[in-house]
Nucleic acid binder design. Structure first.
Lengths: 222, 222, 222, 222
DNA sequence: AATGAATGAGTCTTCATTCAT
DNA sequence: AATGAATGAAGACTCATTCAT
């Protein structure tokens, strides 16, 4: 039974009773929580981060966090989604106005590395996700990869048809690039030294395009 | 009390009082625990695995585990070390009698992939390590990589001096291969589909050696 | 701040400054809250009902409830009082114009059962009260019983003096009836089957008046 | 994989390894917990009793309780079952060697009241059960009642056939007695005064057998 | 060496209540 | 008067570790 004696004729039906919601405030706070939690999840690990410490860090009560996220797990996945969304936005923006195929490839890889140079916490979150939530079908990250896959495979196939790429299936090439990029990302993360990823773009593309064998060897190898 | 190498040389080889220790039994049980714990840590995650379940799985009491390993952390790191040791042994054996540089490279990569095809649990352990023990300087895996690094870099430098590889620093090449291999490993793990890694060896080496650009393009690109 | 009788006599009947309070509205809303809370307390239990759900059900904010009742406990006791008051009114009305002693007894019992047939929630509230507020001296319900006791005992004593009832203390008879009625009420509640209580009046009074022994046995028993 | 190197041939397969279980101790402790928890649940209510206080009362750690009962709910239901089992045992014993129908009725009622005089906590538990666990089909107590019902109805029917009871369905009589007894129990509980229930047996049976009307009235009433 | 009962610190989560607007 | 975000105390439950037998 809903309360019905709300005499809306008085206000002409325009304004609801009570204090109006401050949407901006809610949105801002939600993001504050996401950013703070991301930082802590990343630096201490999901299981070693208790919500009390997130709240303390924010100068907020524990209960407040629960006003924005139902459970600790939910908060974690929201951090993940928030990070992934920013990643997508960042890469899309960087690659939007590429004028050539090669430029697209270079910008894509560069944008990817640049984003993670600036947001290493997201790598940590991806690792945490896999470590703690084993039951999940696919990781958030790979859902993203799958979504973008077709686009890249098409690109590679075009280059192959045009005789620019050798006769290698686009899918294989995609896999190769994907592994390279992914490996660089995680190797950097796992090795503990936080070097710049962006700088890898050029050397990676060099080998990717031309291989390591000298000209002489390539001819012999044929 | 952790199980350690019971240095019988201390007693000068004379038989100590009491029932003689059944070293084989102790050693065997230690490995049983390691194998069982590895499986559970890998499938459920470190934090989601309680020692009670390890003990139950072994048909042993919880206290028994503590006779072999001081803490849960110790057990985890012992699992990791046990896995890494087996990985090293496996790869070393496969690459021992390579007769050419190219064969060494191929066998090395193949041995690596073959090992993880057969022991996917170790990948999980490496991820768990990074997820839970953030304070550790370097991950167990990268300690291994660093140890072997010089050897490979030397190899690449030789090939470069001999004019077989292009004029790319051995270190860069090492990094490239390392990322590729590492990326393949974790991509496979994170994506959830358990495909064969071994099959990747050939296509990876193909691109690694010759790049993706067609002959025509390579010449133009010069 | 709890809603209370706004004693307008204090201001001498002169109109207070500001917008005049819409007493009817306040009163009506107060009853809405009581009715909604009663339903939820009854169906979920006091401790399993949070004020948020009461507010939601009413389509009102949580804070609004606190404008009418100081605490959750207060709200509960108000529900109880509201229910008891309605019970008393209902029974008093039904028994007001009884013309004979027997009719009074029958109508009393019938009115009692009829009320709880129509308002099973109140039984739940009485149980909740006892379950949660152990410190309270007597239960709300038994305060009521005690208030009415003298009246019934007097009645029974009269019947006894008049030789209509056997030589049993009025208090004993009262207790017997009370237990019977009370037992019927709670047995029905506890057993889970919601049968009609009203139908019990006739069979109960039959045994109450004449006992179960056959005429023959009664004589022998003497 | 279960641990299999347990060389049972050494011990001839007779004794399991490790400290043998002290069954008596476990059983005793379980009952200690049940008794202590029953007391606290009864005096403070289920929701107002935290397991820490049960543990403290027992001079035991909180975790210990969880070694014996999986959840707080489980502990509660175990208390309930424990109490009901003792009730059944007590009543069965008292009524076992009754030589006549009347004796059986009297002893049954007396045993019932005597048990609850000695174990008032069980009444509280029954109320708590109904208050907190609304979803449960039937209350533990009424499951018991239903089990015993047939026996009593048969008895009453026999007395009716033999002309000892009036022509009232056994079921009705059972219901009447049940309500009386149940009402006495809960009225006593709810009213707060802890009077003796046993003393009620005689007056209840008196009215139950012969009714309240005087001989004269009974004849007229016919 | 093996056992498993006991321990208790650590955390997530709930929800009555407050109060600025 | 109404609103609902913020608060923080309270409590159920987990599990690594200890230790007497």
């Amino acid at each position: 039974m809903t309360y019905m004696h709300n005499d809306s004729t008085i206000t002409g039906g325009r304004r609801p009773p009570g204090r109006p919601k401050d949407m901006a405030h809610l949105h801002r706070r939600r993001e504050d929580i996401l950013e703070c939690a991301t930082k802590l999840f990343a630096s201490r690990g999901f299981r070693n981060t208790d919500l009390k410490s997130v709240a303390d860090q924010l100068g907020v009560a524990k209960g407040t966090i629960y006003n924005y996220f139902d459970t600790k797990n939910d908060l974690f996945f929201a951090c993940l989604a928030y990070g992934m969304q920013r990643m997508r936005a960042s890469i899309d923006q960087e690659t939007a106005d590429a004028t050539s195929t090669f430029q697209l490839l270079e910008r894509g890889m560069h944008a990817y590395f640049a984003f993670f140079d600036a947001n290493p916490d997201l790598v940590e979150l991806l690792v945490q996700e896999r470590a703690e939530f084993k039951t999940r079908e696919t990781s958030t990250y790979f859902q993203h990869v799958e979504q973008r896959k077709a686009r890249w495979v098409d690109l590679y196939e075009t280059l192959r048809r045009d005789g620019i790429f050798r006769d290698i299936p686009g899918e294989k090439i995609f896999e190769f690039v994907n592994h390279q990029v992914y490996g660089a990302l995680f190797a950097n993360y796992f090795s503990g030294r936080k070097q710049s990823l962006q700088e890898l773009t050029a050397p990676i593309l060099d080998i990717f395009y031309r291989g390591v064998l000298s000209e002489k060897e390539q001819i012999q190898g044929t």
